[in-house]
Each structure stands twice: as C-alpha cells, then as structure tokens.
Amino acid sequence: MRQPDIEIYLKDTDVDHKQVAAWLAEALGTCSEWTQKGLTWKCLAGNIPVTWLPKAVGKWNSLYLESDQTPWDDDIACARAAHAALQVEVRCAPGSWSEEHGEEDADRWIRISADGEEEITWRTQ
C-alpha cells in the first residue's frame, strides 16, 4: 500500500541538500530554489513539497516528501533509491507508524548502507 508521504534519514557527513536536490531533480523533476526558515530548508521537486532538516536526529538529516505522488510506494523504496544514487547510509521506518503501534515499534528502523539492508533498533529520542 502506498504511503501518504515519505521520510528518510541520510547520514550528515556524507550528503547535503544540494546533492539531494540533484538526485530529486532526476527522480521527481526540477527543484525550485531552496528557501530556509530557521534550520529547515524547503523546495518543490516537480510538484512535490520537499523539506530538508539538517541534523534532525543527531548526525542524521531528515528528508520529507509531502506527497503520495512520488515514484516510491514507501519509505523503504525511497531509501533504497537514495542510497543507490547518493552512496550514503540511509535509515527509514519499516512502514507507516502511528501512536497506536506503541513506543517499541517506534524504535524499529531499516538501515541501508554499503553493508546491505538490515533492521536495527534506533532510539531517536
């Protein structure tokens, strides 16, 4: 089932929003000029609203695509594509998460890196 939006986390030391914009331009369409409000950067990639939050969780940058009209059905598909295109470690939730799933499920993540793909426990709070 297609997720209503996409959120992945990219390792900070390896990538910045300009590299992400180049990848998104290929995948989604030309990126508008980035605008910055506080620490948050925003643009449109094609017609998809994009938010980039550097160091959202420790050394990890958040990439949020606010649409269900991306080429990816879910966070994992997007994370795989980001890793392939950018050659950086990417983390994402294994599926949609909501409060009803409980705190333990909130710490379940998929890690995609040069070592492959694995489920990890990542305590983000």
Rank of each mutant, 00 (worst) to 15 (best):
M1W: 14
D5M: 07
D5C: 13
D5V: 08
I6P: 04
I6L: 14
E7C: 05
E7Q: 06
K11N: 14
T13Q: 14
D16A: 10
K18D: 12
Q19I: 07
A21K: 08
W23G: 05
L24R: 05
L24V: 02
G29S: 06
T30R: 11
T35L: 12
T35Q: 15
T35I: 13
L39Q: 11
T40Y: 00
W41V: 00
K42V: 05
C43H: 00
P49E: 12
P49T: 04
W52C: 03
L53M: 08
P54H: 03
P54N: 00
A56R: 00
K59G: 09
W60T: 05
N61H: 13
N61G: 04
L63P: 00
Y64W: 09
L65H: 08
S67C: 03
T70W: 02
P71L: 05
P71S: 11
W72L: 03
W72F: 07
D74E: 05
I76N: 00
A77W: 01
A77G: 05
A81V: 01
A82N: 02
A82K: 02
H83D: 02
L86I: 06
Q87P: 08
E89K: 10
V90G: 00
V90S: 00
C92D: 00
A93W: 03
G95F: 11
G95S: 13
S96Y: 11
W97E: 07
W97V: 03
S98P: 03
E100W: 11
E103D: 15
E104A: 15
D107S: 14
R108M: 10
R108N: 11
W109Y: 08
R111Y: 02
I112R: 01
I112Q: 09
S113R: 10
E117D: 10
I120N: 09
W122V: 03
T124M: 13
Q125R: 15
Q125E: 14
Q125D: 13
